[in-house]
Each structure stands twice: as C-alpha cells, then as structure tokens.
Design a protein around this nucleic acid. Sequence first.
DNA 1: TTGTATGCGTTATCAA
DNA 2: TTGATAACGCATACAA
Lengths: 350, 350
Amino acid sequence: MAEDVTLGDVARASGVSMAAASRALNGKDGVRPEVRDRVQLVADGLGYRPNRAAQNLAGGRASVVGLLLGSDEIRLDIYAASLLQSFVNVADSHDEGLMIIGDSASPNVAVRNLIRDGLIDGVIISAVALGEKWVEELLDANVPTVMVGAHPRRSDLCVVDVENSSSSETVVGHMLDTGCQRVATLTGHLSRVDASLRLDGYRAAHTKRDLTIDDSLIFEGDFSRAAGYERVDEILSANPDALFCANDEMALGVHKGLMERGVSVPGEISLAGFDRTSEIEFAGPLLTSIGQPFDQLATLAIETLSALVDNEQPPLEQLVTPEIFWGETTHPREPTPMEPNVPPDRLERK
Amino acid sequence: MAEDVTLGDVARASGVSMAAASRALNGKDGVRPEVRDRVQLVADGLGYRPNRAAQNLAGGRASVVGLLLGSDEIRLDIYAASLLQSFVNVADSHDEGLMIIGDSASPNVAVRNLIRDGLIDGVIISAVALGEKWVEELLDANVPTVMVGAHPRRSDLCVVDVENSSSSETVVGHMLDTGCQRVATLTGHLSRVDASLRLDGYRAAHTKRDLTIDDSLIFEGDFSRAAGYERVDEILSANPDALFCANDEMALGVHKGLMERGVSVPGEISLAGFDRTSEIEFAGPLLTSIGQPFDQLATLAIETLSALVDNEQPPLEQLVTPEIFWGETTHPREPTPMEPNVPPDRLERK
DNA sequence: TTGTATGCGTTATCAA
DNA sequence: TTGATAACGCATACAA
C-alpha cells in the first residue's frame, strides 16, 4: 500500500507553502494559474489524496451523504433497491461516501449524531421512508436534507422527483386515444404525494379530452403487489377496458389475477404501470410503464445536497422527465420518428 | 440542535484534565474507578459524543465499515438485498457507520482510497461480489477484510458463513428418509465455495445412507431463477422424485416450470431451496428452505472486522447454523418436541 | 499573490 | 494516578 502523502509533501515538492497548496487544490482563488497547475501536477504525480477526517475536522465537509430508506424497504421494495443501487454508483462517481442509515431504536437521534459526529454532511430521504414517524422529528433538526419524492406537508424542503403527473397523463391519454372507453386506475396510498400526482395525471388526461371522470373507476391501493392481486375482482366489476396502476408492483399483481381469470391483455384490458421495475421480474409481461430515471434522481439529489451544504440556494423542486416504455400490455401507438420507443433492454440474469 | 459538547467541556465539568477524561471514557486504565464513574456520568449528562473525525485523525478508528456487494446485486439479488438490510440494522446497533462501496471505474483504487482517506476501517466482502475481477486486486491491498461466504482460493481471510454442508445434508436426508428414491440437485456455479459445499452435503446425505450417487441427477446451475425455469425439462428427463436447489431463486424457477407442466409438488416431486428468501415473493409456494441467518452473519462479520482492526486474532472461520423451514413442498416429517418447526412467519406486504 | 500561524477535537507521550 | 503538551492533516484568517 502506497505510503500516505500529505498536503505538506505536496507543498514541499511544489516549492510552495501548505496554504498555497491547499488553495490551489481546492480551487480557491488567490493563487497564480501557473502555480495552481504545478501544484495540481505534483499532487497527481505523488498520488496525493486529502485525508477526509482532517478536512472535516478543519471545518470542511465530511464528503459523505446519509441515505434514509426506511426500515425494511431495501429487501422488500424493488423501487427502493433500485434507487439505492443508483445512489451507490452516483455517489462513487461524485467522490462522495454513501452511508446507509437504518431504522434504529431512535433513528432521529442516530442521524443527528451522525451529523454531530462529523460523519455525514446531510441526508437524502426517500419518500418511501416517510411513513416512519421519526422522520418527522428529524426534519426539524435542521440538518441539510434533500427529499427524493415530495413530502406531503413540508414544502420548505428541497425535493427531487420524477414528473409524476404529466407522464401519467401521457400514458392514460394513450389508452384513451387507442380506443379505451373505460380507463380505470389503481392508485397508491393517496396520502403520498406521488400517488396523488399520478391520479391528477389520470384525471387531466380525461378532462383535456372533455371526458367526465367516473369515480367508480378509481381504486385506492397501496403500491403493493398483493393489493393489485387481491382487488382484481373488484376492479373487474367496474367493467374497465384499461387500467393504469400507480406502480409496476400493483400492475404485476393485477396481471397475475387477470391471467388466472383468462382475461387477455391488452385485448380485453390494457394495462400500464409506473417505475419500470417489473423487468427485473423473471418471465413477466413486457409491461407498459413509466421508467423512473433512477440515475438522474440520484445525481440531482447528491448535487443538490452538496449545494445545500455549501450554503448555496438550490431550487426547491427539481423534476425530471421519465422515459415511457411502451410494452406489450397496451395497444400499439404510431411511432413518430421524433420520439422513438425505448428499446426493451430486458435485463440479463446472472 | 444541541450545541456540540466536546471532550474539553466534559473534562472541565468533571474537574479533571482532558487526558484523564479521554482515558476514563475509553476504558483505558490508569484512572481511579471513582473518577471514571464521575466522568462517565458528566459525559452522559451533557450528552457528550466524541467527534469521529477527530478520533480518527488522532490515530483512532473511523468506526465505519465498508460493504462490498458487487455491481448490480442490490437490485437483482434478493440474497444481497437481505444481507444488506441486516448490515444496516446491525451496524447501527453497533454504533458503526456503514458505507456501501459500489463498482466504480476502478473500485480497488476506490476502496484503498477510502481507507487512506480515513473514511473506513476495513471492508466486508460478500461472496456474491467475488465474480468481480477487481476484488482480487483489492484483497492484496492489505486492508482489514472479512468475507461473508468463503473465497475459493484465499484461505488466509477471515470468513463468516452459514453451515452450508450439514444443513444441505439434513434437507436431502429428509427427502431420502421420506421415501424419495431419486433425489436430484441443482447447484450454483461450482466455482463458488457455497455452491460446492451444498453439493457436498447432498453427497454426504447419500453416502451416510450407503446409497450410491447418480451423477446424472446432479445439475450445475448458476443461482438464477431463469436457470431453474429453463432446465426443468432436462431435470425431469432424469426422472427424479425430489430436487434440492442450491437457492430459493432457482427453486422458484423450477416450481414455475413444474406448475406449467402440471407436475404436483410434493406429490410427484419434492422441492427444497436455500436462503429462505422466497417468502418475500407474492403468492409463491411455501418452499422448504434453509434459512440464511442474515442478522447473525452481519453481526459476526462486523464484530470480526472490528477485532481485526484492533489487531486481535479473530478465528479464521466462523460458521453459523441455519434454521430449516419445513414448508409445503416436501413431505411432512415427524415433528419432535425438541426441534419444532420454524413458524411460517410470512412477510407482510406494506 | 503568498506564507505564517492558529485551531478543529481527540488520542498518545511523557513528566510530575 | 494524573495533567500538560505534542501530534494527526488540513483549512483559513491574517499578515506580509
């Protein structure tokens, strides 16, 4: 293992003071470009890496972000696992550490401690964790925070999210435009912002076409596969010819139920979901779905948190536009050259 | 947010020097019990928390462990996700930070940097990541390392694992003892130690009953659900009346294939898996399976790594005994009062 | 534009 | 058993 080379070594080798070297390396001004380049070169040559603990202690930052996903979501929730995976990759490429924060006895204390201990600079909280009561307390602790997915009540928090409403509107609109007369929707818990926004999109697709909304076609679910499966009969009794589910999990549950009942998709019922997580599933249907831009969300979240830590004023809300995958569970659409379909890109299994 | 109280504050309030306070709090000797107690009390009262960055800088440890799971496993591999979940919980209760290390451009460099940066004390590597070529380089870098699941060639590394062989033997033995004449097995990649140990158990169950082993009943798979599904015909052509799969994923794949062919389980074929991860699955079979003791593995791994960092000599190999869940895919067994079945404990979906 | 000096919070070394 | 004091590696106010 290479010996540790310190800032002092770099400074000496460059023939400047530590202060100058520090400024040069950190992009602060007050240093001649020529010197800056030289120091940078020497540092690279020596393989210099700043000691984060020292940086942190000296008033800098920890360069580590905390990620809060909820108690058991990593294992149970494909969305959470996918998001985490993206955070792992993005954090790495941003040279940030990523610390996963779990659901301890008193996690709000845990997080505050992490901050005070100087281990992390701030936290990124996924909306899937918002059920946890302690998250609420945490939000008052004044730690730099970025939400992935909006918080139902706190509008003062920076939030990064996918364009829930308009993308849902596009998909539902497509159903309506391809001959479906009775488009139903199975929502998430409507206490969640994303769930309610996706329902808004469903509604907007109708109103913009001067169609009245039949409330008996709206079913409130809970984002779980079981919810989809168990409510198939109830949904069928409303006699729909299309169903927009607020996530893929529910769509898969519904699909299973429909298959068991011999209902053809999309022949008798068109089906679409959200998240595009179902492709991990083995041998499932090629579900039409709105693809969560996980990498973009993670990138935005990390960069926003970074700005927050630096006392900048990042935008309160940043939405990213998802790509819609038109699968085989909805009627085909006219492909336009400007807006080609996203290729299946079915995941390889190891 | 409570003001940061430093060691100096504690020392002053206790009427001792910082040095004494430090010793007292760290359990070093050379301090009167009476003083130790007083300092401890004062520290608690003030809500003192040591600054990890400072501790680290002063030659202590980072109190953060790195976890290496491979490039895309969190999202794709239920085993990896479950393990991660346990690590999150265990790390928290051990007051250790948990940093997830991803698959960057040059991850071996990344990890070494993390160590040099003072961000982590060592790494825990899951065997699922061992496919990655760079892990090999990393292992030579002399960073404190604990493996979860053995490494095929490096016997010098501390390893924590489940009892693969004997538990497999028990399950296969049960199949043989409940009337099965031709017990087949679908293994993992036999380059992996756990896969080959589970096969050893399969063999041992036979030899201990003076049964010859029919190699045509042994199929090498790759731990993927697809492998199970796709090889159903091949397996069936060997005419087995039982199948032991080296993990639940493959077992689920096989089960799906068997259902499609109208083969009854366990009527015509008994089926068992390993890991007990299938219960997350919605509406799958109650698969007989060997339950990975995820929490115990995580606990052992973290404590072993901690010992390693402290220059102690933890045991090179630590095996934990799994609990076997006898589901509905194998023939019933005589329940003995001494060894009751593990209750189903089917997971709730949110 | 540069260098000097100080401090961040802790542990470790050494006298006392 | 204690308590000054010197590291640890870096950033920054301040002086030059």
